[in-house]
């Protein structure tokens, strides 16, 4: 799957989980840039992403992500 397609699908998941259709993600986006992306919603986002892409992350992997792009990069290697 291409990087842009992964980003688009992740964006749709963010919009759904955070109930905000206006969210626009870029590879550089961090939690500081998105309203309501906090430690609790982060868990819900990870669960939704794992289900959507039918994959599992490692806990250490998740904590190492610095931005959305690093998350998408891991997804790209697994799908």
């Amino acid at each position: 799957m291409e990087s842009l397609e992964i980003l688009n699908q992740v964006t749709r998941i963010f919009r759904d989980v955070l109930d905000n259709p206006g969210i626009v993600l870029a590879h550089e986006t961090t939690a500081d840039d998105v309203d309501d992306w906090d430690s609790l919603t982060h868990i819900q986002l990870v669960v939704a992403i794992e289900k959507h892409f039918k994959l599992r992350f490692a806990a250490a992997e998740i904590s190492s992500w610095k931005n959305v792009g690093e998350m998408c990069e891991v997804i790209g290697k697994r799908v």
Binding site: H42, I43, V46, V47, E50, K51, R56, F57, A58, A59, E61, I62
Partner: peptide
């Protein structure tokens, strides 16, 4: 139904 070890979440 599912358990997400990465974030320790059970569905």
């Amino acid at each position: 139904e599912d358990y997400h070890e990465s974030v320790r979440v059970a569905e």
